[in-house]
């Protein structure tokens, strides 16, 4: 699949794409702190400060570890950092805490059972957050394949379950998933 797409783009020579909004802030200029009330403050170059800052991933599925964006109280972006390697340690810890709090996606470690009935499947799984039962309707639509070995499953309520590497699952779990999809 991907090969045929790249073949096409190889053939058509297009002008290069120019980035016109270069990021003007480096990770090392940022400092995140929490006050006594646990409210988050962001300081850039020790002269500009925002409070009640939100930390989000720009592309949580394709680039979970890069492109970290900081939003102000109203949801307007303050800045985006491409590479989290440049943060100081305290800031990085807070970023990780915030991301962990924000993204409630759980990772499926093994599948205990999946029952399929007329396009609805009932899952009973073991995740990194513990055991969970959930219902998926219309698996074709709500199970997204991200690449060939990665799955994102959305249950009827919009909860997210991820399988980062299908081939790492035990055979029994894998068999049950394959029968469902």
């Amino acid at each position: 699949m991907t090969s045929s797409i790249s073949k096409i783009s190889d053939r058509t020579e297009q002008p290069p794409v120019i980035i016109s909004h270069p990021g003007d802030v480096a990770g090392s200029q940022l400092r995140l702190t929490r006050d006594l009330k646990q409210i988050l403050h962001l300081t850039i170059d020790s002269d500009r400060t925002w409070s009640r800052v939100k930390v989000v991933r720009a592309a949580p599925l394709t680039h979970p570890d890069r492109y970290i964006s900081f939003l102000d109280e109203k949801g307007v972006e303050i800045c985006m950092i491409d590479d989290p390697g440049s943060f100081n340690e305290e800031t990085l810890n807070i970023i990780n805490e915030e991301l962990d709090r924000r993204y409630l996606t759980s990772t499926i470690l093994s599948v205990r059972s999946i029952r399929n009935e007329f396009g609805t499947s009932y899952w009973d799984v073991e995740t990194d957050r513990g055991e969970r039962e959930f219902v998926v309707q219309n698996a074709e639509e709500h199970v997204r394949r991200l690449g060939s070995h990665r799955l994102l499953i959305l249950d009827v309520d919009g909860n997210r379950f991820e399988i980062p590497r299908l081939e790492k699952l035990d055979r029994k779990s894998l068999g049950m998933i394959e029968r469902t999809l």
Partner: peptide, 18 residues
Amino acid sequence: LVGGGHLEVERRGEPMLY
């Protein structure tokens, strides 16, 4: 939040409760 949410309780003189 993504895949859920939290209830934030801001308290006088104490850390936020989530």
